[in-house]
Design a protein around this nucleic acid. Structure first.
Lengths: 304, 304
DNA sequence: AAAGACTGTTTTTTTATATGAACAATGATT
DNA sequence: AATCATTGTTCATATAAAAAAACAGTCTTT
């Protein structure tokens, strides 16, 4: 290559150390390379930068002038790389996260608050309902997905952080009124409160796999918030499908009760999706850690 | 090479043009090279700098931060190279010249004054009596040599700018007193005013080649200034050896007369010596031009 | 809806470059 | 003063990088 920037680094080193040999050693290259690169640079610029005897190396007038600029340039690059190093070690900068519609409220209290207080130099942007965004194109650092069918997309890292059994739950009053259903047919006759995970026509959350085929429950009421569903159940609007962990406390206190335990549902699984595992900035590592930690805590709660 | 500065230029170009393909075209390299270099840079820094789809290229948070520093660095280098370009085109800077002892006065009026007035941005340092200096080691841009024996030194450019017949001259009064000598023996009996060109023991200027061997004239008075010698002759201190051109006017006006025209002297030759012909800064080119021009004018005067 | 144009990446081949030894030149040392 | 150690440069060879072509996506257009 004619216009080789490495010539400049090498020239700087020679000029600074006043020696081709020492420059070669410090850069861990051959002195013949040093000699050639400096010659190339001189030829390209059309100026002799260094006057050299076999015994001494001195800057020419032009070389001294040029060196100043080169040294500043090298310094700028050093500063830049130091900054990158810092960003790798310390969580700083802006983080854009895509979360499913029905997860915002769960995240806010249990993840966002502790994360932001632990990492004061990070700013967080959480975009709800951006379930199927293109991480790279739309500039997200991370997405949380609650898909039940795993999507295979190379170049993206999928990481399961949470898996929980889902159950049918309702208020005690609801059970008293409709009876405790024991199969899918009976459930379909009871009012159902649906959630949707992502896109408008995404019905995966409302599908029940029984006897080798999928049954879709028709919803009386649909809302994209876990908290709203719980409240609706307590208002006796109907039964719902919930991850066990989400309603563990309500079940313990008797506010909600499980119905149709014989009917098995697929698990609720939460994935983290992010582009490329290597070269993660510290801010992303930190957020992933927080999420993984949260997932583990939730799972423990489940199996307690 | 692991730490390749060219990665940075390429990254800058990609980031600026938001395209690998366009960056490759503008840098006149292959897009595969661009792709590889950016990947190398990312690997080295351990950060993804650019998020890329097959259709779009976007800076990451880290990439944007890093880019700022890289752009500044590139800008610095551009400034430096622009300066070098100017120095090549416009005579600026400091010029160190070594001249023989007996040339300073000749140079001052006929070369230095017109040169400095024509090139106001050049500062000139003229070191007298530095005849046999090491151009490179001692940091001279140019030396003027009046050697009679050509020295062969590779890596140095020798350029003859002036050659003149030397003659014996004296004042008319001197001739009246001592008679017009016709051979070397007669000359040796007359008082001789000597010059020396360089080192203290340099007698080449006072040697006369006659009948196949060298004769050294014993000087009654030695001084290292052409002007002083002329004045001394006019004060009838003795005869001297002078290049014809130097005393052309004095001979024409009758102030000085040639003696012993039968005795042939070697020519006076003036050389320019400078390191490396290519990559000369404009200041040096300009000074060489002035000297060559001066030499030609003097030679013309001679043959008129 | 399907083909085409254009993106960035990967792979193979060709080219260029770094290397290491020998070299010429200089200063220090004996 | 002569040898020795060390400098920067040169040259043949091994190595690494750039080029060229093939590839796998994505968006546009017919």
């Amino acid at each position: 290559m004619n216009n080789d920037l490495n010539q400049i680094r090498i020239f700087c080193q020679v000029a600074q150390l006043q020696s081709f040999t020492q420059a070669a050693e410090s850069l861990e290259i051959e002195k013949s390379t040093v000699s050639n690169k400096v010659s190339q640079l001189e030829t390209r610029l059309g100026v002799k930068l260094l006057q050299r005897t076999t015994r001494s190396v001195k800057l020419t007038d032009e070389g001294a002038q040029y060196l100043k600029f080169c040294q500043q340039a090298m310094h700028q690059i050093e500063l830049g790389e130091a900054l990158i190093g810092d960003m790798q070690q310390q969580a700083v900068g802006h983080l854009r996260v895509a979360v499913p519609q029905n997860f915002a409220d769960v995240m806010a209290s249990m993840v966002v608050v502790p994360f932001l207080s632990e990492h004061p130099k990070v700013t967080l942007e959480m975009q709800q309902g951006a379930q199927n965004v293109d991480l790279i194109k739309d500039g997200f650092d991370l997405a949380i997905r609650a898909s039940f069918s795993e999507i295979d997309d190379s170049s993206l890292i999928y990481r399961k952080i949470y898996q929980s059994q889902r159950i049918f739950v309702a208020s005690a009053e609801h059970v008293a009124k409709f009876g405790n259903a024991i199969n899918i047919q009976q459930l379909r006759e009871q009012p159902y409160i649906a959630s949707f995970a992502g896109e408008r026509n995404d019905t995966s959350f409302n599908q029940v796999y029984v006897d080798g085929r999928w049954h879709t429950l028709q919803a009386r009421f649909t809302v994209n918030s876990i908290a709203a569903i719980v409240q609706s159940m307590q208002a006796n609007l109907g039964f719902a499908i919930m991850p066990v962990t989400m309603v563990r406390d309500k079940l313990a206190s008797g506010e909600l009760v499980q119905i149709a335990p014989q009917v098995k549902l697929t698990d609720s699984v939460i994935y983290l999706v992010y582009p490329s595992r290597k070269g993660q900035p510290a801010k992303l590592k930190a957020f992933i850690d927080t999420l993984v930690c949260w997932g583990e805590k939730m799972m423990l709660k489940n199996h307690r």
